[in-house]
Design a protein around this nucleic acid. Structure first.
Length: 379
DNA sequence: GACACGTGGCG
DNA sequence: TCGCCAAGTGT
């Protein structure tokens, strides 16, 4: 690994910031200096690309202009504003932190990374980003860009998939951060990481900091960063139940302990939950249907006849799970009451007013394809 | 420390 | 279709 002298550090800062001042991106959250704007953008940008975030950010700030507005927003409004961004606990945590700011901090922002980390959903990266960008605290914001950029510049071969590696990078970058412009320094590193020093197809040849790039001079750019691979997503078969009555479609809201919590979907039943361990191998679709109609339907006080919807299943892949959803349709002539289900009968044109996860949109599209025409209103 | 947690883009 | 990546945090 390389070591930089004080002279090199000063030279690097000057080169980096001159480039950033001339070529840095003009992003909506970079207008003015507002900790609320910085915070919202940083949380949205967690594991999410800039181009995806921009429209969500604009809409979010327009819908919830201040911390106080966010703190008192109806949950459905919040989840709808976040729909499609993913990692939905970020939205709930954002609101909880807004409530912390109002009640515990009386609307007065804490200004150091250490204090900011006490906000729910604000970890070491986001705390440092807010502290440096909005409050000029001299701390490195160590995100994926910083890992990638500095691992290449200095040929640091520590495995960035390991949690303790963060501290190593923090310690290495800390003395390099420009004490006069820490926020600009951190954002410049991010712009570098999304332009010349990308993960795939980097262009270190034309990078403004090429002469500081040890991995480039060694011809080993793509050897950095070192990162162990994540395990493959696990296949989980589901049944998706499309139950239609005169009052509309049956939608259920996902529970607080579940994935996608707070969002609405057709009832989803894990295939494995219908089959007992010993005979899981011999189970058939007919047996599953019978179990669904007897056990599941009785538990929820419904009487229905489920028909498999032919054709391809709906497939949706998450970071750690791969869902294969077989759709089943039931047509009811009367509308049962829903005493035992966290569900609602929703008319076709009202479904898209609810916050819906991507897998639900895929199930609706598959169903529309089956019936041969549009059923649900465009979002 | 390991794992859960969403979605879209790209080769 | 598949694998990997993108401004991480909570448990």
């Amino acid at each position: 690994m390389e070591q930089w002298s004080n002279e090199t550090i000063v030279d690097f800062r000057r080169t980096l910031l001159a480039w950033y001042d001339a070529k840095g991106r003009d992003l909506p959250w970079r207008h003015g200096r507002n900790p609320y704007h910085t915070w919202i953008s940083e949380v949205m940008l967690q594991q999410t690309q800039v181009q995806t975030v921009i429209p969500y950010y604009e809409n979010f700030i327009a819908t919830f202009p201040t911390v106080a507005d966010l703190a008192q927003a109806p949950e459905a409004t919040l989840l709808k504003a976040w729909q499609g961004l993913g990692y939905y606990s970020r939205a709930r945590n954002l609101q909880r932190a807004a409530q912390q700011l109002v009640t515990d901090y009386h609307g007065q922002w804490p200004e150091t990374a250490t204090e900011l980390e006490d906000l729910i959903g604000v970890g070491p990266y986001t705390a440092s980003a807010i502290a440096s960008i909005a409050f000029d605290q001299v701390v490195p914001a160590v995100d994926g860009n910083a890992f990638r950029v500095f691992s290449r510049l200095l040929m640091i071969d520590a495995d960035i998939a390991k949690p303790k590696t963060r501290q190593l990078f923090t310690d290495i970058i800390q003395p390099i951060v420009d004490p006069k412009r820490p926020g600009a320094f951190n954002q410049a590193i991010m712009d570098l990481g999304s332009s010349y020093m990308t993960a795939k197809n980097p262009d270190p040849e034309h990078s403004p900091v090429r002469r500081f790039d040890a991995s480039y001079h060694a011809g080993r750019v793509l050897d950095f960063p070192v990162k162990t691979k994540a395990p493959r997503p696990k296949l989980i078969p589901y049944y998706g139940l499309i139950v239609h009555s005169p009052a509309g479609y049956l939608l259920v809201q996902r529970g607080s302990q579940e994935m996608l919590s707070g969002y609405w979907s057709f009832p989803l039943v894990k295939q494995a939950d219908l089959r007992d361990e010993k005979h899981a191998d011999e189970a058939t679709e007919e047996m599953d249907l019978a179990t669904l109609q007897e056990k599941w339907a009785r538990e929820n006080q419904l009487t229905l006849t489920l028909q498999p919807l032919g054709g391809r299943q709906v497939s949706h892949t998450y970071t750690h799970q791969r869902w294969q959803v077989k759709l089943l349709v039931a047509e009811l002539t009367t509308t049962p009451t829903l005493d035992f289900l966290p569900g609602r009968w929703v008319t076709a044109d009202q479904v898209t007013a609810l916050p819906l996860p991507k897998v639900q949109e895929k199930m609706m599209a598959r169903y529309e394809q089956h019936v041969g025409h549009a059923v649900f209103k465009e979002n």
